Simulated assay, not measured.
Amino acid sequence: MSATNESLCQRILHDLNVIFKRDPQILEFDIIPIEDSVSNKSPVIHVDHRLGLESWCVRHLYQYIYHKFVDLRTANNRIGHDQINEWTRTLLLLNPDLTTVWSARKELIENGFIKVLTELRFSEVLLTRKPKSADNFAHRQWLLKYFMKSETLSDELITNELRVTLDTSSRYHRNYHSWSHRIWIIENLFNNSLDKLNCELMITKCWLESHVSDYSCYQYRQYLFQYIHKHFISITDNNSGVVSNEVKSNYHKLLKQELKLLNDLLVLYTDQESLFIHRRFILVSIDQWFANESTQLKESEKIFIKQQLSLSHSNNTSNQWHFILINRHIKYINCKLNWNLDIT
């Protein structure tokens, strides 16, 4: 790298470090598509807790810091924590999928140089640019587990973590890593709280209504229904007590509410296959866990299908696809539930 470029990278690195020191409440980061540099003007932009970097300098900066970092790791040279923090922070801003760099930051945390809450905030900034970073979510899980070794997680911190997953899911639709992280939160931080699980169903229902095509959310809700059944219905069944009947009743109500939600959404969004697939899961769940309702469920599904067919009677492409979805749905439930529906 030329002396000019090296001097430029050092100046950019210095500007970034100054901003992080002066503004610990940075909310977002992104690369701004500006291909040509302007003389005597820093490519680092900082406005209202938002941080940006002009794209023309990214390649030079990344190569400069990456080579410095690799040389440090391979030669096992001793260098100050400040320098490692600055290099790794900038590398992750440019590329958050560097596992070795995340490992270096874990070492800084274990050595007490970076606080866990500070690192969680930095990780969230990175997610605003790369909301589907598996390494970032894995790092957040490590941070939370490390924090729990010495302190108790507050409800506020757990709530914030749930908020982060919805934010990343909104930024990148069908974000598998984001919803998987939310499942990890339930399994590790919820302590089998039925109230919190019911709250999750309510929160994600509101989110789903504005993200109807995001099938990852449907899969997450299916996980919630299965989790509740496994950890509460099956267990209380062994006791055959009043609590079991109450939990069963509430669980049955949740499934019926989900079916009603799908009824309403399928009137507005007739061409969304995700809605039909999720509906099949709910139908199978009700039929499997509340077998005494099979006949009533079958009749109500006949009414639903007839309503859907009436909506599909058109020659436009969208409704032709709708008709295909209806027929797929009929074939599936006939095969899975042995209902032998004959809709004419």
Rank of each mutant, 00 (worst) to 15 (best):
L8N: 00
I185L: 08
F29G: 01
P43Y: 04
F29V: 04
W56N: 01
I303H: 15
S39M: 10
N95A: 08
I186H: 02
K253E: 10
H231M: 12
W339R: 04
S249V: 07
S213L: 08
G241H: 09
S178R: 02
L61I: 07
L259R: 06
R89L: 03
H313E: 15
V242E: 12
V247M: 06
N111Q: 12
R174K: 15
L275D: 03
K331Q: 09
K115L: 13
L127C: 03
K230D: 07
N340G: 13
R171T: 09
H211W: 02
D271Y: 15
T236A: 01
W289E: 02
I65A: 03
I228Q: 01
Q272C: 12
K130L: 07
F281R: 04
Y172I: 00
E246S: 15
E273A: 10
L8R: 00
L157C: 01
L208S: 11
N17I: 07
N17D: 14
S37N: 08
I109H: 01
N160F: 14
E200N: 08
S133F: 06
F290E: 05
W207N: 07
D71S: 15
H60L: 09
A134Q: 11
H181F: 12
T168N: 06
L283W: 04
N85Y: 15
T159Q: 09
K298E: 05
S39L: 10
E119K: 02
I183A: 02
N315R: 07
L13P: 01
K41V: 14
Q25S: 10
T74Q: 15
R22K: 11
D237I: 02
S193L: 05
W142S: 04
E161S: 11
T344H: 15
H322Y: 06
V44N: 08
M202T: 13
V38D: 15
L194F: 02
N40I: 06
L120S: 05
N160K: 14
N239L: 15
T204R: 04
S249D: 11
V58M: 06
L16P: 03
F113P: 00
K149Y: 05
I79G: 00
Q308W: 09
H229E: 03
E156K: 15
F69K: 04
G80V: 09
I31F: 12
T74V: 14
Y251E: 05
K302R: 11
N192H: 12
R163Y: 13
H49R: 12
M202C: 05
H139L: 03
K115H: 13
L197W: 01
K331D: 13
L153H: 05
V284T: 12
K115C: 08
Y66A: 05
E110D: 07
E28Y: 10
